[in-house]
């Protein structure tokens, strides 16, 4: 066996060890993903939307301050954004409430 062959063998052995070890650690029963929870996905999305709408309100204020938008339009857009923010907050609250009640139900049952 030449030195080159030895190095090649070493490389293959190291790779096989690297990818093979997890297969023999008795993890096969562990599940990779929990089923996707649509509530969590919606909650995540709403949190991002909440941030974006709040940032949009800030930006709108800045645009108003720098004279890009009239007072009338500013009020109109601001109202719309505030309504959107309120609806997002409402939905977030709803999801939190639902989660809490779902968590307390089995506790009461026991």
């Amino acid at each position: 066996m030449t030195f080159v062959h030895f190095i090649q063998l070493l490389l293959v052995a190291a790779i096989l060890l690297g990818v093979g070890l997890p297969l023999f650690r008795g993890l096969s029963k562990t599940r990779l993903f929990k089923p996707v929870n649509p509530e969590i996905e919606e909650y995540k999305h709403l949190l991002v939307r909440k941030e974006e709408v709040l940032l949009s309100i800030k930006e709108l204020e800045f645009d108003f301050k720098t004279d890009k938008i009239s007072e009338e339009d500013y009020q109109g857009v601001r109202n719309k954004l505030e309504l959107e923010a309120a609806s997002i907050l409402e939905n977030l609250d709803r999801l939190e409430r639902e989660k809490k009640s779902a968590a307390s139900r089995p506790a009461k049952a026991t």
């Binding site: 690297g18 990818v19 297969l23 650690r25 993890l27 562990t30 990779l32 993903f33």
Partner: peptide, 30 residues
């Protein structure tokens, strides 16, 4: 290795198997 990575990632996701996933997860660096 890259071929193994593709196959094992797909199998891990389809079979929801963490052992295969951890094995596939070594392949990008290898």
């Amino acid at each position: 290795t890259a071929l193994y990575g593709c196959v094992s990632y797909i199998m891990a996701v389809r079979g929801n198997r963490v052992d295969l996933y951890l094995s596939a997860d070594k392949t990008p660096l290898i």
